[in-house]
């Protein structure tokens, strides 16, 4: 949620820098945005530390206030220039190719490409440089602090990087898509992997997939590119949430179901074991009796017996059940544990 807060809260920083430079492509804008991002985080921490305001309320208090300042500044001083609130909030990727970077009169390609490329390069460099420190501070901040890493400095550094990324993406895609792209791919990736390095790689891959699918969707519907990308981010997350092996919703449901049958077979094996070789065996070990004794419905009893037969746990002669070697072993094992 912090990234959402930052993506809104850096607006006044951008506006002020723009008013000072009168140039939307000035690198000062990126710096100002980074500084405002850090300011946002500090304000939230400051408010939180007073103990008067809960942390989530502090976030919810700070960023709308800063965003409002930005909107008011735009409305009052910059209303007649390119910088309007819609563009900030929603972005317009379709125009990105038209904003070219020219050097000495030579057209070098779209400006966003260079800006985002530079930010990507910076991030990869920072990530490689501080990988170990970030990893430690993420998973065990107390230990990181104990061995002399400064988790607070890392935290603010990370947030500054987030701010720079957000502002880089800002004029291309707007502040909402930034959040979708920052949150959805890692959220989807965490269903699949446990290692941090694999997690980072997979979420980058999901991010690329999101962008490509979203763009295709926008082309097909002739709708907002930013919006379509957010939708495709949501779709990728939903697929992961439902279908991921092991941790997905469907996998969990299947697992629970098979465990239920497994448990029923074990119950059956124990029941048959208890009465094995005793006089009442003829009476107790009948399929029909299971309904009464274990409270199973006729269909359920039949299904459990069928599964147990398939696995070679029980043998069946007419209505009478008896345990196989494997069935005896299973029943004994379950009784002893």
């Amino acid at each position: 949620m912090m990234s959402d807060a930052i993506s809104h809260a850096i607006l006044p920083g951008i506006v002020v820098a723009f008013l000072l430079t009168q140039d939307l492509s000035s690198p000062l804008l990126v710096l100002a945005a980074g500084a405002t991002g850090v300011l946002t985080v500090s304000l939230v921490e400051l408010l939180g530390r007073t103990g008067l305001v809960a942390r989530d309320a502090a976030i919810g208090l700070v960023f709308p206030a800063l965003f409002s300042i930005g909107v008011v500044l735009i409305a009052r001083y910059a209303g007649d220039v390119h910088l309007d609130t819609d563009a900030v909030l929603l972005g317009e990727l379709a125009f990105a190719p038209f904003r070219r970077l020219t050097l000495l009169g030579v057209d070098l390609g779209p400006r966003s490409l260079y800006l985002m490329g530079a930010i990507l390069f910076l991030q990869i460099a920072l990530l490689l440089l501080f990988y170990k420190e970030l990893k430690l501070a993420t998973f065990d901040p107390a230990f990181a602090a104990a061995i002399g890493l400064a988790p607070a400095a890392l935290h603010y550094g990370l947030m500054a990087t987030v701010s720079v990324t957000v502002v880089g993406a800002f004029d291309a895609v707007g502040s909402v898509l930034v959040v979708a792209l920052m949150v959805a791919p890692p959220a989807a990736a965490h269903f699949f992997v446990r290692r941090l390095s694999a997690f980072l790689a997979l979420s980058a891959a999901f991010g690329i997939a999101t962008a490509v699918v979203g763009y295709a969707l926008a082309r097909a519907l002739d709708a907002s590119i930013a919006g379509s990308m957010a939708v495709s981010a949501g779709a990728i997350f939903s697929l992961a949430f439902l279908l991921a092996p092991e941790r997905g919703l469907v996998a969990a449901w299947l697992r629970r179901r098979s465990q239920r049958w497994e448990f029923a077979q074990e119950t059956l094996a124990i029941h048959l074991l208890q009465h094995r070789g005793l006089p009442e065996e003829q009476e107790e070990c009948r399929v029909a009796h299971l309904e009464q004794h274990l409270g199973w419905s006729a269909e359920r009893a039949a299904e459990v017996v069928r599964r147990a037969e398939n696995r070679g746990l029980v043998r069946r002669e007419a209505d009478l059940l008896s345990l196989s070697e494997a069935g005896v072993a299973l029943g004994k094992e379950r009784l002893s544990t």
Binding site: M1, V183, A184, D222, A223, G227, F237
Partner: peptide, 18 residues
């Protein structure tokens, strides 16, 4: 929260521009 916020908003935006 952030996930649902951005995805739903994006959906709204997509429909709106559509």
């Amino acid at each position: 929260l952030a996930l649902l916020l951005s995805v739903f908003f994006g959906l709204g935006l997509m429909l709106l521009t559509f």
